[in-house]
Write a protein that binds this DNA or RNA. Structure first.
Lengths: 117, 117
DNA sequence: TGAGTATCTGTTCATATGTACAGATATAAA
DNA sequence: TTTATATCTGTACATATGAACAGATACTCA
């Protein structure tokens, strides 16, 4: 299965490299995917998202649950909003945040499987 | 379903906050999960992992596919190894890297769904 | 309109991150 | 052992990141 040919320049398996480059998704997609995962790659944002898996919550609820400043929560929510990971509805002065879709739950489930095994 | 009581101190929905705090996983798990996603949250590492979904590759193959220095690839592979996302086998001087398990493929699939919709 | 409250935004600062360069290992073969 | 090659590691540096504080909005109610 594996080509054991010696490398031409340095150690490159030419054909394999060509094939993989063909299959590799575009720079844009790679960056988008990285942005998505990066957004999930911070403890505060993980906690926010996990909290919202239980029910919708307002900003100061999240502040109380997670234990950082309202400002910090708000900044992080902005990142999550930009990436369409959370949505919100307004009720008077209060904004209720919730998960934008069920991708996040699936991603978390997969992630937890990896982490806890 | 949603409690519309006014907040006591500031706007906190006490019962909801209590319930969510109960359900929230531990600090350790949150940090581990964040570490995992953070590892997936960089374009270079995304490209490495995606390349390895096609087939096992040596370091300089990855260098050629992705277009950064061997040093950079090696540094990133170390991060991926630490998090048990990739494994490798040695064959003489050459190290062949491959995905450690199939979680990554599932995570990528979920991620791509979110990104491309 | 004015006061009060929930949330957001601008800014600053300490820390983390990704890369390249140079040099260190590890393995194979002479 | 010596040489060559594949990969790793230490380091430095530019940039990104996350948090808090202060001040700005947005909405409600009197």
């Amino acid at each position: 299965m594996v080509e054991l040919d010696k490398c031409d320049i340095h150690c490159i398996h030419d054909k394999a490299v060509q094939a993989v480059r063909q299959a590799l998704f575009s720079e844009d997609v790679a960056v988008s995917l990285a942005e998505l995962f990066k957004a999930l790659g911070d403890p505060t944002r993980v906690k926010i998202l996990f909290s919202l898996m239980t029910r919708e919550l307002c900003v100061c609820d999240l502040t109380a649950v997670i234990g950082v400043s309202e400002s910090a929560v708000s900044h992080q929510l902005k990142i999550l909003r930009t990436l369409r990971l959370v949505k919100f509805r307004r009720e008077g002065k209060i904004l209720y945040y919730s998960l934008a879709d069920d991708h996040i739950e699936k991603l978390f489930a997969q992630g937890l499987e990896h982490v806890t095994e």
